[in-house]
């Protein structure tokens, strides 16, 4: 593929999305991102979407469905918030310490989840149901079902949320790490081999169990970052989710995952996830600008319709091209 086609293919969807949404906003006398604060939160949301999408896709692309992503993010945040507050009492460096702890605890939670999967050898979707319930239960037990607020409200967290370059830096760091790990290491090659042909890969000597475990650890660490970013965004953690109340976060990542996968054909699927996250964040900012005209219910419907329409295109691309291409005489 030519470089120009790669660039155009990679940027087309975000550019078209931006153009359409900017025109919509301009036509209604609104602005998608009104000021620097708006841009800070645009970047923060893009980071959340991109990293959640990556975490979802790592296991889903290998046929492993994981409902526990949301529960992992919340539990990692609760634990790290409590520890950080215990150590620094909300003082300087709280955000940095909490981020580090979120990553470590998230990775450990991922390890537990993956460990259960490889030990019990029951379908990952079932394991993830059990793990979701367990993590939600632990979170509820620690918080007593209350919001965690005091522990996460401090100048350090406010400074983090108030500067777009911190989330941007996290986006770049995560993107570089994930691209390196999955595209340039032995682990990544094994992952791809297992993804495209599990039986053949195992028969050729690839060790599936450690690879799967690492996938869960990475997922957990990524969701730890997402948990931290969510805390920075909302300045509280809801500790009262029980009975699968935490799985909603996963569904928001479906549309960017498919869009990212499509963009990935022209460059790299991880870059695709970033582009898709930017699209979702632009859409989110536009919804915010139109919040008086578009209710939350309507937003849900628009997101769902976009998902279905995009998938119809994606899964019938060949047919559509055939129909739309000029017939030969």
């Amino acid at each position: 593929m030519k470089a120009s086609k790669k660039i155009i293919g990679t940027l087309a969807i975000p550019v078209i999305t931006a153009a359409v949404l900017l025109i919509l906003c301009a036509a209604s006398g609104k602005s998608m991102i009104a000021n620097r604060t708006g841009f800070n939160y645009f970047t923060l949301y893009a980071a959340i979407v991109m990293i959640t999408t990556m975490a979802l896709s790592i296991n889903l692309n290998s046929g492993r469905f994981d409902f526990s992503l949301g529960a992992m993010a919340v539990l990692a945040s609760v634990l790290s918030a409590k520890i950080t507050y215990g150590l620094l009492s909300g003082g300087a460096g709280s955000a940095a310490l909490m981020l580090c702890l979120n990553v470590v605890i998230g990775a450990l939670l991922g390890l537990v989840s993956g460990g259960l999967y490889v030990t019990l050898r029951i379908p990952p979707i079932i394991t993830s149901l059990g793990v979701t319930l367990i993590y939600e239960g632990v979170t509820f037990t620690i918080t007593g079902g209350k919001y965690v607020m005091t522990e996460v409200r401090n100048a350090s967290m406010t400074a983090f949320a108030g500067n777009w370059y911190w989330p941007a830096l996290i986006i770049l760091a995560v993107l570089a790490f994930i691209i390196y790990l999955f595209d340039h290491t032995r682990f990544g090659y094994d992952y791809k081999a297992l993804q495209s042909g599990q039986k053949v890969a195992v028969n050729t000597g690839i060790r599936e169990v450690p690879n799967a475990l690492w996938c869960y650890v990475i997922c957990g660490a990524l969701m730890g970052v997402v948990g931290f970013l969510n805390v920075a965004r909302s300045a509280n953690i809801n500790g009262g989710s029980l009975n699968f109340g935490s799985i909603g976060i996963m569904f928001t990542a479906f549309l960017p995952m498919f869009i990212g996968g499509y963009i990935g054909r022209f460059s790299n699927d991880k870059v695709g996830y970033l582009m898709a996250a930017l699209c979702m964040s632009m859409l989110n900012s536009t919804f915010a600008a139109f919040s008086n005209e578009i209710s939350a219910s309507t937003q849900s419907i628009i997101n769902a319709v976009l998902l279905v329409v995009f998938l119809i295109y994606l899964n019938n691309e060949g047919l559509l091209k055939k129909i739309l291409s000029p017939r030969k005489a």
């Binding site: 029951i122 059990g130 239960g137 509820f140 037990t141 079902g145 029980l242 009975n243």
Partner: peptide, 17 residues
């Protein structure tokens, strides 16, 4: 309620296992 959900999940995983 949190503890009972944990126990319920462990029991669920055990039965499925």
């Amino acid at each position: 309620y949190g503890v009972s959900q944990i126990v319920s999940a462990v029991f669920f995983l055990a039965v499925v296992y």
